[in-house]
Amino acid sequence: MAGKFKASIRIKTAEILLAFLVVFSGVLLGFSGGGFVVNFNKVGFSVISLIQKGSSSAISAVTGIVTSIRDIAVLQKEYKELSEKLKDYEFMQRNNVEIRKENERLREQLQFASEIEYKNIPAQIIGRDPDNLYSGITINKGARSGIKKGFPVIAIQSGNVGIVGKVVTAGLDTSLVMPVYDTKCNISARIQNTRDIGIVSGNGSYGSPLNLQYIRKRVFDSLNHGDIVVTSGENGNYVKDVPIGRISKIKILDYDSSLSIELEPVIDFLRLENVLVVDQKNLNDKPPLAKN
């Protein structure tokens, strides 16, 4: 039995060795024929191609991201520059509009100033008295410009001429004007269409109506809302026939022989910027401006 077992092992070993030799011979034949070499080349090329393709795609993606970030930064910079230019342009446009409006106002004032019979000094409002409901108006001209206490002050606003008040203090380079709405201001006035005379006084505030007193009741039927009341020119305190206000309310009081009349001022004091101070003792020597 032992001899048979040993013989069987020798036979199997010989068969295994024979099979190995056959396979090894085939491999050698394959290598010598170039078949395996070609296959390995193809496999290596495919692997390298895939690696190169992946690397190229990754590099392209990174390059695209970097380029996009740079483009965004450039666009943001250009947007900021354009925004600043737009702000500058809008600012210039607003300034141009303001300059044109200011030129129109000044030309209107100069044209009017040249047509006034008396000498006048143009001035600009530079302050208002905050302690007395804006009852004091400060202008940028004074004694150096020929202004004296008591000079009447007028203005032209949106094509309308109106009385502003009178100078109560004249400094060297500035003056204080008491406006018509001041309670201490009293102006001899006439109703333009009936020529009835009375006194206009203020109520202490630019937002309150003016009062016209001493107009007889019998002229009630001759009066209308919107009638213009002008300076009478009496006593030499104010230039004659300068509009003061328009009649806004008329009341008949049983206990009074005169009408109670309220006026809306011709001048809008909150929008008032420039005025003319009139010297009634000297005639105007300025030639009229040529009209376009």
Score class of each variant (00 low, 15 high):
30 G>W: 13
51 I>S: 11
171 G>P: 00
112 F>A: 08
100 R>C: 00
1 M>A: 10
109 Q>H: 07
29 L>Y: 01
286 K>Y: 06
220 F>K: 14
32 S>C: 00
19 A>P: 03
216 R>F: 07
46 S>E: 13
210 L>T: 06
44 G>R: 08
282 N>F: 11
166 K>S: 09
72 I>W: 00
146 G>R: 05
40 F>G: 04
40 F>K: 05
160 N>E: 14
70 R>G: 07
114 S>F: 10
18 L>N: 09
259 L>R: 01
20 F>N: 12
269 F>L: 03
49 S>I: 00
96 N>L: 15
134 Y>P: 02
231 T>Y: 03
161 V>Q: 07
16 I>G: 03
4 K>P: 01
143 A>M: 09
226 G>R: 09
33 G>N: 14
235 N>H: 05
201 S>Q: 11
64 G>V: 01
249 K>Q: 12
289 L>D: 05
25 S>P: 01
214 Y>C: 05
14 A>H: 07
50 L>D: 08
190 R>I: 04
247 I>P: 06
27 V>R: 01
203 N>L: 14
166 K>T: 02
278 V>W: 02
120 N>D: 09
202 G>D: 00
169 T>R: 15
132 N>S: 15
274 N>M: 04
276 L>N: 09
154 I>N: 10
190 R>Y: 02
210 L>H: 07
182 D>S: 15
72 I>L: 13
267 I>W: 07
262 E>D: 07
283 L>S: 13
35 G>F: 15
73 A>N: 11
194 T>M: 08
113 A>E: 08
45 F>I: 11
157 Q>I: 07
261 I>F: 12
283 L>D: 13
144 R>T: 10
210 L>I: 11
40 F>Y: 05
157 Q>F: 02
105 R>A: 07
116 I>E: 08
240 K>N: 11
62 V>A: 08
132 N>G: 11
128 R>N: 08
226 G>I: 03
169 T>I: 14
259 L>E: 02
186 N>F: 06
131 D>A: 14
11 I>V: 06
149 K>Q: 15
11 I>E: 08
271 R>V: 00
88 D>R: 14
153 V>I: 14
123 A>T: 12
76 Q>V: 06
186 N>Y: 08
26 G>R: 13
17 L>M: 03
212 L>M: 00
37 V>I: 11
278 V>S: 08
13 T>E: 15
18 L>E: 15
50 L>Y: 06
88 D>M: 08
100 R>Q: 04
94 R>G: 03
149 K>R: 14
111 Q>K: 12
284 N>Q: 10
282 N>Y: 12
24 F>R: 00
290 A>S: 15
21 L>P: 00
256 D>F: 03
